[in-house]
Amino acid sequence: MIVQALAFYAFSAVAIASAVMVISSRNPVHSVFYLILAFFNAAGLFVLLGAEFLAMILVVVYVGAVAVLFLFVVMMLDVNFVELRQGFLQYLPIGATVGAILLVELVFIFSAWAFGGGTLAAPAPDPTEIANTHALGNLLYTRYVFAFQAAGLVLLVAMIGAIVLTLRQRVGVRRQKIARQVSRARAEAVEVVKVPTGQGV
């Protein structure tokens, strides 16, 4: 148990520290790397909870795809973050005050935490009996099938949105038209010209 507790505190501490670094580091590339670190620690926490499937998904999706995408964006766009931060100090006092108040209040509220009635919506199944992935699948495609399908629609909208907002048919851009290339007949591609000798073309 002590090992688990130690691991929990280690993962948590690193996760929080790296989250702070994400928003405070000057170099945006560093920020993204700290983000990846935070993700890894979160995955570690999942493993501790026995949710190894979620841990793997977190690593694959967030670290492997999302964070890398961020990195691309940050590097390609060359945003001047220093300039963006210029107003930061100006708003810091009031922002910090409001944030602090909210934090204190929430702490106060959570100190009154009592898990309502001891009921759990769906208690985690015993990992020795049923595989983690299997259990999730059982739940996702039954009890939460509605949410699952609807989430699919959300993703569809995101896809459509990305296309609508960014895809442009630029005029004057030469594109490869594969269908035309494939269906091209010899007659229209090559013209055989008989050149009488001595007259030139």
Binding site: I109, F110, A112, W113, A114, F115, G116, G117, G118, T119, L120, A121
Partner: peptide, 24 residues
Amino acid sequence: GFAGATDFATLAATLSGGETLAIG
């Protein structure tokens, strides 16, 4: 977190019974 349920029916059942709602 405080009520232990997400569906409205259970929420209503869990939360009922108090004079005023708990702060959480």
